[in-house]
Design a protein around this nucleic acid. Sequence first.
DNA 1: ACAATACTGATAAATCATTATCAAATAGAA
DNA 2: TTCTATTTGATAATGATTTATCAGTATTGT
Lengths: 124, 124
Amino acid sequence: MLRSTRQRTAIREVFEKTGRPLSTEEVLKAAKKQVPGLGIATVYRAVKGFLEEGDLVTVAIPGEPPRYELAGKRHHHHFHCTACGKVFELEGCPGDLSYLAPKGFRLEDHELLLYGRCTRCLKA
Amino acid sequence: MLRSTRQRTAIREVFEKTGRPLSTEEVLKAAKKQVPGLGIATVYRAVKGFLEEGDLVTVAIPGEPPRYELAGKRHHHHFHCTACGKVFELEGCPGDLSYLAPKGFRLEDHELLLYGRCTRCLKA
DNA sequence: ACAATACTGATAAATCATTATCAAATAGAA
DNA sequence: TTCTATTTGATAATGATTTATCAGTATTGT
């Protein structure tokens, strides 16, 4: 049975409050404000559990450790700031991209990633 | 100074003849047809050297080891077959995607990855 | 052909993210 | 409150990719 602990509660709240995909290290850092002694192993365990329960989904970034975000959102893509490394959620999508697939190939899904600088990094 | 060896020549030719992004293991397998005794360390060294010389560029795929392709091609994207794992080069691009970036963000680049089945895997 | 040195192959070692281990702490039921 | 199984934190272990090591080999300039 899955218990409700301070650690897991804090980790879940981090995702609810942050609103962008987070790596395990980002989760650890943020959740430590609520639970100072939190260990990275607990973050991995909690994230794994949330993934299995369907509360989180994985956001894979090329060449980067995976991020995780709350499940249930509609189709969207992401922006990766090349300065601070943060990943942001985007609205919108170019739409049907099947015209890009070679003839004879079957398109099942797609992923779009924008790269650049976020507002905060541009100001800094 | 960089010497021209059978191994490096074979590895370079693999990229020229294959025409799609290759992982180190794919390079090893293909280049062994020319140089049977080829070792994986030599592949890593050659790829690293070609990257530094600007002959190759990295093609990063989420959750996968990196692929490499010849540099100097015009802007393009890739198709990842979820069955065989091969990565293919695509022509075309949705074009300007700056309308997707949040206000105040600066868009510098983008990457689009299509997922599905390649012709060969659909037939099999 | 010779000499100098870069290259190769096999494999040990280093990385880095993730998982396993285990004693101590804690949530939940009675 | 008490009991018991789950959870936690620290850290060792794992898995996978990449790099370092080193003796032997091969390439290039002379």
